[in-house]
């Protein structure tokens, strides 16, 4: 079973929920798919056992064969190639590694070389199987690395996926094939606006979902009213608590200091299972 944790707005508590849920269950694998800013390792302190470099193919021009016809630049939908009179410019930061340039080149003048885009790290944190992706600094495109992390999915485990904020391609890539998604929000106008966007993503992708309100008490009740109106289940509320915030700041998952929360996360998991089989 794959449970993903997403949010729309950043900093609402995705990693907090993903990590504390993982620590409350048995037979778990946690995948941190926020490859731009992976933070779950700060809380789980996993022992990293393997590091695999992830690559994306990048076109390389063979000038002995190239006749500067410009077909590659015309076919590239990402503006990643420009053909000049006697030179071909490739822009790695725009290239998606799709291979279209190579497909259309009649002179067979394009080869591909691997370009490093990041690292997939694997290991364990106690009983938890752990994997994450770390995007190389300066790299623009996260989805291929997210796909690399998701290749590590172990179908025999309960898989928890920590997604990145936002509602665009990296989030879609992280959420695809999830059995359920937990949306973490905060009870503020920003939280609500971005929650609505995230709900739109999940409805479009036909993934069942529920909401967790984090820092309950800091704002207003518009998130609750919205969920009620939209018949969205509020699975849990985590109160605004100085203790939880302090533990978070130190990189300590709060279930380890507040064991009563373990049961609540176990209940959450039961509820998710019920929702999926319903």
């Amino acid at each position: 079973m794959i449970i993903s944790v997403a949010s729309g707005k950043g900093g609402t508590g995705k990693t907090t929920v993903a990590v504390n849920l993982a620590l409350s269950l048995n037979n778990v694998q946690l995948l941190d798919c926020d490859v731009e800013e992976p933070d779950a390792h700060i809380f789980l302190k996993p022992k990293i056992l393997t590091k695999k470099t992830a690559y994306l193919p990048l076109p390389k021009i063979n000038y002995d064969k190239c006749d500067f016809c410009g077909e590659c630049a015309k076919a590239c939908n990402f503006n990643a190639i420009a053909v000049l009179k006697n030179k071909v410019l490739v822009f790695p930061e725009l290239c998606h590694g799709c291979g279209v340039c190579k497909l259309v080149c009649k002179k067979n003048a394009i080869q591909e070389k691997n370009r490093e885009i990041g690292v997939v790290r694997k290991g364990n944190a106690g009983e938890i199987d752990y994997a994450d992706g770390v995007l190389k600094v300066g790299e623009a495109i996260a989805p291929p690395l997210i796909r690399g992390v998701k290749k590590e999915i172990n179908p025999n485990k309960t898989v928890i996926i920590d997604a990145s904020p936002g509602v665009s391609c990296p989030v879609v890539e992280a959420l695809s094939n999830s059995d359920y998604c937990v949306l973490v929000t905060e009870p503020t106008p920003f939280g609500l606006y971005d929650l609505k966007l995230a709900v739109g993503v999940l409805r479009k992708m036909s993934i069942p979902f529920g909401v967790i309100i984090n820092r309950d008490g800091i704002g207003d009740n518009r998130v609750e009213k919205y969920c009620e109106k939209e018949k969205i289940r509020i699975m849990m509320k985590i109160p605004m608590s100085k203790d939880i915030a302090t533990l978070y700041s130190k990189g300590i998952p709060f279930v380890t200091e507040m064991p009563e929360w373990k049961e609540r996360f176990m209940d959450l998991f039961k509820e998710i299972k019920n929702e999926i089989t319903r």
């Binding site: 731009e36 800013e37 600094v137 623009a140 904020p165 936002g166 990296p170």
Partner: peptide
């Protein structure tokens, strides 16, 4: 947030 394409 982040450091991917929209940030760059």
């Amino acid at each position: 947030p982040g450091l991917g394409c929209p940030v760059i």
